[in-house]
């Protein structure tokens, strides 16, 4: 019964309701999303590096459980930052003409949302790298719409790799 109800709800046309802010600040930057994506990679790596000795004394085991909890929490939070930052730019900044010029945008945002959720659920280095790559592609589109050429520069983070910045 609920599946039938779900079906009928989903075929209803989707309209827009504006939840206007009083302050259209106009300040957008995909940089935070990139930092968060690097953090997700870093946390994934740190979690993988934790050496777990199940025969260790209880005080030692507490230490690595504590470490794992902190890394997992940071991974979770930063994956959520990515979703938030990308969603805000996508929903508030991008206009129909941007989508027309960059038809891959919606699909890319969808991919970022799914990949960020996967980054929360799993300890998956490959997915974390794909997430960063998708966020950087998003950053390139963003700067393109600002008529700014973007460049990839080496990050100075322990994760290595690159960040995308306007030239």
């Amino acid at each position: 019964m609920s599946k039938i109800l779900d079906f009928f709800i989903k075929i209803l046309p989707l309209k827009t309701a504006y939840a206007h802010c009083d302050i259209p600040c106009g300040i957008y930057d995909p940089h935070l999303a990139q930092l968060a994506a690097h953090t997700v990679i870093r946390m994934t790596s740190l979690i993988n590096d934790v050496k777990i000795d199940t025969n260790a004394p209880i005080e030692e085991r507490k230490k690595f459980i504590h470490q794992l909890s902190r890394y997992t929490k940071a991974k979770e939070e930063h994956a959520e930052i990515i979703k938030y930052e990308v969603r805000v730019i996508w929903g508030d900044y991008f206009k129909p003409e941007h989508v027309k010029d960059n038809p891959e945008l919606h699909e890319l945002v969808f991919k970022i949302m799914k990949s960020a959720s996967k980054a929360k659920q799993e300890i998956n280095t490959e997915n974390a790298n794909e997430l960063l790559s998708a966020v950087q592609q998003f950053a390139e589109i963003f700067w393109k719409t600002k008529n700014r050429e973007s460049v990839h520069i080496a990050s100075s983070y322990p994760t290595g790799g690159e960040i995308v910045i306007p030239k």
Partner: peptide, 19 residues
């Protein structure tokens, strides 16, 4: 009677997020 809406904007946060 019944309609779906997608939220654009932040003024209903934290109850309803953008999107």
């Amino acid at each position: 009677l019944l309609s779906r809406f997608i939220i654009k904007g932040h003024s209903m946060e934290p109850t309803l997020l953008n999107g």
